[in-house]
Design a protein around this nucleic acid. Structure first.
Length: 721
DNA sequence: CATTACCTGATTTTT
DNA sequence: TCAGGTAATG
């Protein structure tokens, strides 16, 4: 491909950005102005001009963005693209640390602790230090440590700066936390960045290697970088000074996580010879939508003025609907989606955004009631689920015996007669032999006063871990290792013995885990278990949502960044919901909410709907009456059209159509109030029935057991009496 | 040691 | 509302 062909699809400004000579470049790119395009073409341009692919590193914020960039570059220039480092900050750092970790006294097979692992560790430390969780909430400690690490403040520095009793206590915990992470050869999320920087700071030869290699450093979404990340970028680009960053200060929505748009605003100060290019033409949205977005964002005081424009004229007016409550709001969305689909708009063209994940629930109910297809992106992470964490703990414990968090976890998954008491006995033994907990199971015979059951259980755990290691060494596909693990641990058998609804969905989840392992096996020539564990640690399931694009998409506004849809609904536009309650008191946080609103609005290509509810139940028994969001007031009236309410109630949910039979079993006799008999638990009464993803879920009260059970009717061994 | 029943407690966004 | 931790019980 010639240079002419390559660049022909770009406008003059985009093209100028792509063709910038070497040296630092800042591309200020408004929403929908072709930011990703510029990055992708820049890479292609560099390659065309003789830059070796392995000397380019492109860093994005999410795995999804990295994947997209990789495939778009591959589309342009073919398989050479594989040689380029296209990754997130975190995975780039892991890649560096896999090699350099020994310099920090870590094993190459280090574990990566996610936030729930860190929280668990912090709880243990609080217990050991005899600090009451009420005096020092673990979550707060975790947040403080995370913030510190994002600012490259290690425990020592933090202690030096701690000037009140509260901070001093946190400093104590932080110090111990770091010590234990090191003992367990584990990094938490924030460590991945901070400790990579530490390697570079302490070992000039390591820094020199990467600096020499990466002749071009490209960074997407620069406004979302935190101090540690921007420092890392600065270090990497330190030798060649070819740092090409793209960002939009108006779309910075991660300050709560330590991101600071200062990095973007100070770029020219940090790189005095920098060239700046501003992309202001929007190719995505209608004039109406863009006018609304601009009108909202203008209310941010702390902002450099910038106006996006579009060549598109007019467009549909923005539709407003005032729901009476959240159910009404959701039902209205559903009926409008139905109407749109009758008019020929595919469901996949529609997205519904909300501020918090909890809001998806009502929408799901409404869409189920209306039999409309949807998919929820994000929410409770797949890898956060118990069964997944349990399975991962087995694999992690096998690969990193120092990983105490995982070793403790597997003692109870499934139960083997090893309770807290036995664990501390084994731990004491391990300590006396200077041996990691993960290796101590094999020596259970030598542990003092361990009861018989625990002893046997521990020995079995030891055998299982050895077996997993064997499988890994003999190059067995990861899929088989995963499946073998849930077999030999007895985890799957235990789940299968239980016919409850939860158990079924857990089994499904485990199979899904095997599915992602299979995907890994397919895409990797010589994979290893460690490699797979790393992938799982850094990739959350929202990233890989290929496949069915048939339904309406539900997601949080944060998740929507970087995406676009012809038709967008934003629900819950009320004070205290959006802007979120926790931001109301602080002007800076409020501006972040406004940027979030800006992001949401600019996702829409053709039509935009903004909704609020007068009355909403957020948590607990009583409802909130919130005024409409200030962001609504900031949009000029002439861009907005009020929706009429008239046909709403025709589609209100009156009854849920339940399938007569699911999975070949006749369900019509199961009704609320019906008396049934269960082969194991005896007689019971159905107190609730609901349709679920997997079939029909019933809540059944068994008087003899004194408790309710949730069962799947298609599978549970029950019959109507 | 395991199970269960309560009982908190906390509720934003995520690599 | 709900999940996760803890206390009480088998």
């Amino acid at each position: 491909m010639t240079s002419m062909d390559l660049l022909s699809g770009l406008n003059p400004v985009q093209r100028a950005a792509v063709e910038m000579p070497e040296g630092p470049v800042l591309v200020v790119a408004g929403a929908g102005s072709g930011k990703t395009r510029v990055l992708v073409y820049r890479i292609a341009y560099l390659l065309e001009n003789g830059i070796a692919p392995e000397s380019i590193i492109a860093i994005t914020f999410t795995n999804k963005a990295a994947g997209e960039m990789r495939s778009r570059v591959a589309d342009l220039i073919g398989p050479t693209a594989d040689e380029i480092w296209v990754s997130t900050f975190h995975s780039a750092c892991v890649r560096i640390l896999r090699r350099e970790a020994p310099r920090l006294g870590y094993a190459n097979s280090f574990s990566i602790y996610d936030s729930s692992d860190s929280l668990r560790l912090i709880r243990m430390i609080l217990k050991d230090l005899n600090i009451d969780e009420k005096r020092l909430p673990p979550r707060g400690v975790a947040a403080a440590i995370s913030n510190a690490k994002n600012k490259l403040m290690d425990a020592g520095l933090f202690s030096d700066f701690a000037d009140n009793p509260y901070e001093k206590r946190i400093a104590l915990v932080y110090t111990e936390y770091e010590k234990r992470l090191a003992e367990q050869s584990a990094f938490d999320f924030d460590d991945l960045i901070m400790r990579t920087v530490e390697v570079f700071d302490k070992h000039p030869d390591a820094l020199a290697r990467y600096q020499g290699r990466f002749r071009h450093v490209l960074i997407d979404e620069f406004q979302d970088t935190n101090h540690a990340q921007s420092r890392l970028a600065t270090l990497l680009a330190g030798k060649w000074r070819n740092i090409f960053v793209v960002g939009d200060a108006d779309q910075g929505i991660y300050a709560f996580r330590g991101a600071t748009i200062k990095n973007l605003l100070d770029f020219e100060r940090d790189w005095p010879e920098a060239k700046v290019i501003t992309l202001e033409q929007n190719y995505r949205s209608t004039r109406t939508i863009l006018d609304a977005a601009n009108a909202v964002i203008e209310n941010n005081a702390m902002r450099k003025p910038k106006a996006l424009w579009t060549a598109q004229e007019g467009g549909e007016r923005i539709v407003r609907y005032h729901g009476s409550d959240e159910h009404d709001e959701a039902a209205w969305v559903a009926q409008e989606v139905r109407k749109l689909s009758d008019q020929g708009h595919p469901h996949a063209d529609v997205a519904v955004f909300y501020r918090t994940n909890a809001q998806s629930r009502v929408l799901e109910e409404a869409f189920n009631a209306a039999s409309l297809p949807y998919r929820v992106v994000g929410g409770v992470g797949f890898y956060d689920r118990k069964e997944i964490k349990d399975m991962m703990a087995w694999l992690r414990a096998a690969m990193n015996p120092l990983d105490t968090i995982s070793a403790e976890r597997i003692c109870g998954a499934p139960k083997r007669g090893i309770g807290p008491g036995s664990i501390s006995k084994i731990q004491a033994f391990a300590a006396s032999r200077v041996m990691p907990l993960g290796n101590a199971f094999d020596y259970a015979e030598e542990v003092d006063r361990l009861n018989k059951k625990a002893r046997g259980g521990a020995l079995e755990i030891g055998r299982i871990l050895a077996h997993i290691r064997d499988l890994d060494h003999s190059g067995v596909p990861i899929t088989d290792i995963v499946a073998s693990t849930w077999e030999i641990t007895g985890y799957m058998t235990e789940l299968q013995a239980d016919r409850s609804f939860e158990s079924l969905s857990r089994q499904e989840n485990l199979k899904e885990l095997a599915g992602s392992a299979a995907e890994y096996d397919e895409n990797t020539q010589q994979g290893s278990l460690t490699d797979f564990l790393e992938l799982v640690a850094l990739v959350n399931d929202t990233d890989e949502e290929e496949g069915e694009e048939t339904g309406v998409t539900f997601m949080t506004l944060h998740n929507a960044k970087g995406l676009e849809f012809p038709i967008v609904f934003i629900v819950g536009m009320e004070e205290a919901v959006f802007p979120h309650m926790r931001s109301l008191a602080d002007p800076e946080q409020l501006e972040e909410e406004r940027r979030l609103c800006y992001v949401g609005i600019t996702r829409a290509q053709e039509r935009l709907y903004l909704l609020n509810a007068w009355r909403r139940r957020l948590w607990g028994p009583d409802a909130n009456y919130n005024t409409p969001s200030r962001f609504l007031r900031e949009i000029p009236d002439d861009l907005i059209k009020e929706a009429d309410k008239k046909d709403l109630f025709t589609t209100r949910r009156t009854s849920v159509d339940k399938p007569k039979s699911v999975g070949g079993r006749d369900l019509s006799r199961f009704k609320v109030g019906a008396e049934i008999e269960h082969t194991r638990w005896g007689r019971g009464i159905i107190v609730d029935l609901r349709q679920s993803a997997l079939g029909m879920e019933a809540t059944i009260h068994f008087p003899d057991m004194g408790s309710d059970k949730r069962l799947d009717l298609t599978l549970a061994p029950i019959k109507v009496v």
